[in-house]
Design a protein around this nucleic acid. Sequence first.
DNA 1: CTACTTTTGCAACATTGATGCAATTAACAC
DNA 2: GTGTTAATTGCATCAATGTTGCAAAAGTAG
Lengths: 137, 137
Amino acid sequence: MKKEPAIRELLHSHNLRTTSCRQGILDILGNSSEALTEQDIKTQLDSQHDRTTVYRSFKTLIDNNLIHKIVVDNNLVKYALNPKWYSQHDHVHFYCKQCDKLVCIESEQQAGIPLPEGFSASETEIIIKGTCKTCTE
Amino acid sequence: MKKEPAIRELLHSHNLRTTSCRQGILDILGNSSEALTEQDIKTQLDSQHDRTTVYRSFKTLIDNNLIHKIVVDNNLVKYALNPKWYSQHDHVHFYCKQCDKLVCIESEQQAGIPLPEGFSASETEIIIKGTCKTCTE
DNA sequence: CTACTTTTGCAACATTGATGCAATTAACAC
DNA sequence: GTGTTAATTGCATCAATGTTGCAAAAGTAG
């Protein structure tokens, strides 16, 4: 759970001003164990903001590597705070088809998919779909 | 390279009528070694079709597992014919950051990403980004 | 508090996904 | 080939989202 001074500091360290929209987004995502949709976040924001402002806030935060965006099934869009291990490991997302939840999973193990001759990989995006723990029980 | 009778037969086996739009899309994708954007396909179609028709044709073909859709970087959308091995193996896409090409890669090896307790996977979507053979040379 | 720079809100526009409905077309039987 | 029927198209229309320009408002440093 991120507190205001921490958020302020985080933004400041990226040369970003502390605005209620950015602060709210980071706070909401920081308190969530799963990725959230734009709607989820908008309804949780205490102050109303223009659509463009929210859009630009997402963009700024993404550009500064504070959050990231995940698209599932080509149309479901969710956002998540970048975890501490964000850049160290392969980034894997798990999507539960039953409850629609999307969570980030730390994967220390390289996926290790063999590529044809001459191809070289720099990034790998993985979305695993299935059933989460809660829905299995 | 798919010929018209083959396409007709393919559509028929899925209880779909042979329309010039569907036929055109399948023909174009069948002759392409890479995934194409909606624009790519539209410009290659000989007859003009309404936006909705093309949209619905994609939808129908996707629903019937004849083609699939790939989203890269959350905004680039491409379509590809479903290869013969489509359902047998993990489906891996390779996206070349330099030339923007997107190709399907057959991956016999399971990605084998470890999931937390209680989570079970049914599908895995993988996009590998990097440099393709042509751009490396 | 002031000055300066960033950020917001609004207008505006493009693209894409999606649906209802009447007109058109494909497929099948004859 | 013609006719019948059901699928498909084209058009209108709407919602959601991405994007930009610009003047007003707000954040920050001194």
